[in-house]
């Protein structure tokens, strides 16, 4: 598990960001800490079906990708 996938990760650029809990700078691809929680991403949504490593579908209808942030998606379902 990486910071990049964590709910508390606030990215400032494609390489790094800030932990929303302690405000420290962290690298996106470094290992997460014990407070890790899954970010709201398409890959954790029950509407999402993975079709290849980096692509999938949403509700079997739309192209989608697993890493997409979904905090703003009203249809996100765990």
């Amino acid at each position: 598990m990486k910071h990049y996938d964590c709910k508390y990760y606030l990215s400032t650029d494609v390489f790094k960001g800030i932990c929303k809990r302690d405000k420290k700078f962290i690298n996106a691809d470094d290992d997460a800490c014990e407070n890790y929680m899954n970010a709201q991403k398409c890959k954790y949504c029950s509407n999402f079906t993975l079709t290849s490593d980096e692509l999938g579908t949403c509700m079997n209808k739309y192209e989608a990708y697993p890493e997409m942030n979904a905090v703003t998606c009203n249809d996100f379902k765990n």
Partner: peptide
């Protein structure tokens, strides 16, 4: 510009 590799296919 940097783009996360996993976003390139989409």
């Amino acid at each position: 510009f940097g783009l996360r590799k996993e976003e390139m296919p989409i």
